[in-house]
Design a protein around this nucleic acid. Structure first.
Lengths: 192, 192
DNA sequence: ACTGAATGAGTCATCCATGTCTCACTTGAA
DNA sequence: TTCAAGTGAGACATGGATGACTCATTCAGT
């Protein structure tokens, strides 16, 4: 049947293509459509058949990033328990798509138009809500705004991804480094 | 005399052009040479007379960024006194060129060639040296590598610049936000 | 007033990424 | 086997950014 399942050929895997594109574009944001196609193991023609232009590809990556972000927010159950633990779980869950987020984060054209994706607002809301909750129950300091903490999390995720890609830090330390710096800071603590 | 001082016309100010380009490219990394020229108040022809192509302009911006970074490192006297205070002074001094750094930081093509500027190595060395000093004298925790702390500083500077540009946080809070988060983290501290 | 240097505006050719199209081939389903 | 869908390779036209060029104008110094 042509309606139920359209999977005669397995050579094109939309999800695989998107992830390959994300992986490449994270390292080289100016990569050619040809390069993106080759990195996914398909031809430029096929890539253009499924994504009408570079812009459409970036938009699809944006959707993917938002979806994975919200999935991470769900999996981390950020509304449960202590805020600090929630942040740790979130960073752990979000690690697989950190590279994609770093690319989207640097793609500032996504945010300058008037038709920006509402998904970012939802994520921003939940994220700032998490930090605000931590501030209200006394876990987090209040002199750093929840908005800034959310923004800093993005920045640290991007910096961490780049550092891992360039081999400056070990991939296994990714979660620990970001979570500890964001939550505890660099200064040594005598308590605990 | 044509050898001593070449400043007959004041209409072209190399430093002003570079700073205008930095300011624009920070917001829109894909800006046209025409747009860059207009943002500096000069024509595209003149821009091309002084910078042979976009690549040369980016390289000049790289040089400017490195120079301002090292100037900030000097002005902050990062070798003096407590490491935490040195970091605060450094962030304060580096604030004016944070936008430029954010742009260069996202221009990953600068770091993939084999002919990358040695200035970054010098800065990286001094920066990691600062954090290592803090670790060795017990100020900073040792489970976060000095390399990562330096990388995180870059990431936070970039995130802070963007947040200011987009109006998410106040420009006056820039130094305080970055320094406090990097040094103290988000978690509330009961000691002073 | 004169001269030379530098600029601004405009034009032109070139390059490169992109999008579209065609055609032969492969593959799964009937 | 037959057929239709999907793919890969290649050719083609297009658009936009870029760099080089010309020419009139402006301005500083003499």
């Amino acid at each position: 049947m042509s309606l139920v399942g359209y999977h005669w050929l397995m050579s094109f895997d939309r999800d695989h293509v998107l992830h390959a594109a994300a992986e490449l574009l994270t390292r080289k944001a100016t990569a050619t459509m040809e390069e993106v196609a080759r990195s996914a193991g398909i031809s430029r023609a096929t890539l253009n058949r499924h994504f009408a232009g570079r812009d459409a590809l970036v938009r699809a990556l944006e959707e993917l990033g938002i979806a994975e972000c919200e999935a991470a927010l769900e999996a981390a159950r950020i509304e449960d328990g202590a805020a600090a633990g929630a942040v740790r779980r979130l960073i752990c869950e979000i690690q697989p798509c950190a590279g994609l987020l770093a690319f989207l984060y640097s793609e500032n054209q996504l945010f300058e138009g008037e038709k920006q994706n509402a998904g970012w607002f939802r994520i921003e809301e939940r994220l700032t809500g998490l930090f605000r909750r931590g501030q209200e129950n006394g876990e987090f300091r209040i002199d750093l705004s929840a908005t800034w903490l959310a923004e800093a999390l993005y920045g640290l995720l991007a910096a961490g991804s780049w550092a891992v890609i360039e081999g400056r830090v070990a991939r296994n330390d990714f979660t620990h480094m970001i979570a500890e710096l964001l939550l505890g800071g660099a200064t040594r603590r005598d308590e605990s």
